[in-house]
Design a protein around this nucleic acid. Structure first.
Lengths: 346, 346
DNA sequence: CTGAAAGCGCTTACAG
DNA sequence: CTGAAAGCGCTTACAG
């Protein structure tokens, strides 16, 4: 339409410098270190910037300054709503510090890990937040080799020498058992997550530890395999229904499985919590809209993301952390609702 | 630890060139246009690349080539799980074409729009996918002014001259009414979304059109205000409960509101679907785990994302689209479950 | 407090 | 098919 206006070309720093009657160095300083300039000079430059509508080219700036102000967030599965809130916390903290968010979705496979290493290796980001519980690896190298600052959030990475932020999974699982036991339950079951998942391992360990603390023989308890999906909860329900001395207290490693379990046992005529009490984990929004509403542990998802991002920002700001990398473990409060109650008598 | 190895410094293109005994131009071509090289030369270069572990610096490449292989996705609220699947579809399509994903979260406000314009203006991305239903605007300029290719997905932007991919919202809403009417319902209600939302407008229009098609006077129908939240559904339920001639068929503009409505009316002793039938919209996973399971319209979320991304990739590849920008509208199938049934007699 | 100049690491006409 | 060289648009010692 208006091709004739001539100044279609994006403004460069030299254009601003010329208009303000200063060098490009001064324009650069006005934008990145305004304190170094005389007020009058600064004002002149900023006016020129404004009138010309100048925005620095990020590629040039990154190339020269050797940083991109971008952070890579590695997500195991972007379609999992659990991470939506975590991402929000990350985004809030990062954007407050001027960093942008690059999403690396693994889509539940490891095939994409080399690609993510490439993103880091090619200097596209200043740091990495891992939500996937492992350091991405390629054919011949690990993301650790790039020397880029990293933090792990949600899923801890055992043995990693960088900061981590997770939940008190084991403690919560112990509490789950103690809570059910306090209600009189002695025949307990655990609906497990995928075996290689660190959250599953911690929650299972807590479940077993809780049994021990209550003096319940492990062989009296059932463990139903699962994978964090609704379907796994429904499968566990079938096993539950066909077992002779049914458990009366069930702790599921996440809410989806608890909800799948709830639906299936009730469809079979089992009353919750009269016949069986069910406890979930995560505290997803829907836990309060199933029937009966689900007793669960509310993970501080947003806070997990925020604190993880804060640790990364700290690392990026070059605060030489001589101390060991922190491993923050946030508490996970129990939210009692209607899916749990006293154990049936007899 | 192993600081003495000397080659800690990231490899540059010159290192590869030297090792392979060619110019940097040849290395560059090996990586971006291998067909231009003699097979022997190409092999030599690639071997050098491999042995040295070379990855091109993206900032330098972007600065010189004037493109970043990055796409900005503007999300109205990253904490909303609805977008998780849409993002997955986008990610699948983009990554298949070598593009990365930069997330711009508006967090339900307009305050961040200028910042997103800055991202585009500064050349950080090659294109933009808008999920937020409007073109971001700053104090003095719109994102449109940057000339960067854009597409709108999910929420249509009226009057926009770029490609769009949405759902057949109005058609689905018409069908919702027809479906309820076919079940014998004549007293209908609509739980609305936020007034300024384009999806709300389309669904409401469809609801009203459906009434007309069924010969039902608009004044016989109720419209409960809402904002797509559970809470809005619960509020609508209160209005419903206190109304004299209660509607027997309720269509909510999304599943969350339908679920909130379900929960509240049942808590008040109303039976669903015996006393009232409820239809939702979106087809979120949880719709199949509430009680009763929710009849709803399943949005093709992933496909929406995928097709939107495909249109952007097409635009970025410079396929001169002389024709008008396409506006794709995907069908939204009705999923009948247990929350709907015949109208009560009398 | 400000400027001249080098240089970040690539790609790409241009030439042969 | 390959190379020499310019240049993308910034930032930053260095000097004054």
């Amino acid at each position: 339409m208006d091709d004739e206006t001539g100044d279609r070309r994006t403004a460069r720093i030299a254009d601003v410098a010329q208009l303000a009657g200063v060098s490009t160095a001064t324009v650069s300083r006005a934008l990145t270190a305004p304190g170094q300039l005389r007020a009058a000079t600064l004002a002149r430059v900023m006016e020129a910037v404004r009138s010309i509508g100048y925005t620095p080219n990020v590629a040039a700036r990154s190339l020269r300054a050797r940083r991109t102000m971008l952070v890579l967030v590695v997500v195991p599965d972007i379609a999992n709503p659990f991470f939506a809130d975590v991402l929000r916390g990350i985004d809030e903290e990062l954007s407050a510090h001027g960093y942008g968010l690059l999403i690396g979705n693994l889509a539940r496979t490891r095939k994409k890990e080399p690609q993510l290493i490439g993103i880091v290796q090619s200097g596209q980001v200043d740091g990495v937040i891992l939500l996937n519980g492992r350091v991405p690896e390629g054919l011949d190298r690990s993301m650790s080799d790039t020397g880029t600052p990293m933090v792990a959030v949600c899923e801890a990475i055992p043995g990693a020498n960088f900061p981590q932020v997770g939940a008190q999974n084991r403690e919560a699982a112990i509490e789950a058992v103690a809570y059910l036991v306090a209600l009189g339950h002695r025949r307990l079951a655990y609906v497990a997550g995928p075996k290689d998942n660190v959250l599953e391992r911690e929650r299972r360990a807590g479940f077993l530890q809780g049994l021990r603390a209550a003096g319940i023989d492990r062989r009296q308890a059932s463990i139903y395999p699962g994978d964090f999906t609704f379907a796994a909860g429904e499968t566990a329900a079938q096993t539950f229904l066909s077992s002779p001395g049914r458990p009366t207290g069930v702790f599921a490693a996440n809410d989806e499985m608890a909800i799948g379990f709830l639906k299936s046992v009730r469809a079979a005529g089992v009353s919750v919590p009269r016949d069986v009490s069910v406890v979930g984990f995560d505290g997803i929004a829907f836990a309060d809209y199933v029937e009966p509403t689900l007793t669960t542990f509310r993970q501080p998802r947003r806070e997990l993301g925020r604190q993880g991002a804060a640790l990364l920002v700290e690392a990026l700001s070059g605060a030489a952390t001589a101390t060991d990398a922190p491993h923050i473990r946030l508490p996970v409060p129990l939210v009692v609702r209607d899916s749990t109650g006293p154990a049936p008598v007899g």
